[in-house]
Amino acid sequence: MGIKKIEHTALIVKNLEESIEFYEKVLNFQLRTTANTGIRKLAFLFIKDHPEAEIELIEELTDKESPYINGVIDHIAFAVDNIEETIKDLKEKDVPLLSEQPNLTAAGKKTIMFKGINGELLQLIES
């Protein structure tokens, strides 16, 4: 067995439609497809210039004891070419950042964190 790539990352969201709008307008994702299984509403979105990079958004339709029943994802990191330009774009879209300036990763790359519409932790890393 050999893992080739990450197929997608799934996030539990509070409201699927609002989350789709956030990922499209703020982070440049494009909707691939949606589905309703009766117990969950699902959406798959991809990065416009990299259709192989995909996330799945899940809105639970039934009562569950916790949306974290299947585990918790700490954050999703997105690679960007120019972190200062991306920060400027996020600020213009009124997205609050968790720090005023980028920090450095352990590998010495510029990084900054912010939260998505559901409180999910998101990270930008200048590649």
Rank of each mutant, 00 (worst) to 15 (best):
L27K: 05
K4D: 13
K64Y: 11
I112R: 09
P96N: 05
N28E: 10
E84M: 02
P67R: 11
F44L: 12
K93R: 12
K4V: 12
I55H: 02
N36P: 07
E85D: 13
E18S: 04
I83L: 09
S127R: 12
L57N: 02
I55W: 07
K91W: 03
M113V: 11
I125A: 05
E120T: 08
L124V: 02
E17C: 08
K25A: 14
K41D: 11
I87G: 02
T86E: 08
H75R: 05
P96V: 02
F22A: 01
A79V: 04
G119C: 04
L121G: 03
H8F: 13
P51G: 04
E100W: 00
H50V: 09
E100P: 00
E60P: 01
F114N: 08
A35N: 14
N103H: 15
T111P: 11
K109Q: 14
I117H: 07
L11R: 02
P67A: 00
I55C: 02
L124T: 01
F78C: 01
N70P: 00
S66W: 08
A77Y: 03
E7P: 08
N70I: 00
I55V: 10
Q123A: 12
N118D: 15
P102R: 14
T62S: 09
K4N: 11
E92S: 10
I58R: 04
K64D: 08
E59Y: 04
M113I: 07
L57I: 08
G108A: 05
A107V: 11
E100L: 09
N15G: 03
N103E: 15
L90I: 08
F29A: 08
G71T: 07
S99I: 12
D49I: 04
V13L: 06
N70R: 09
Y23P: 10
L104W: 01
L57R: 02
E56H: 06
N82C: 14
I73P: 10
N103R: 12
K115A: 12
I20T: 11
I47E: 03
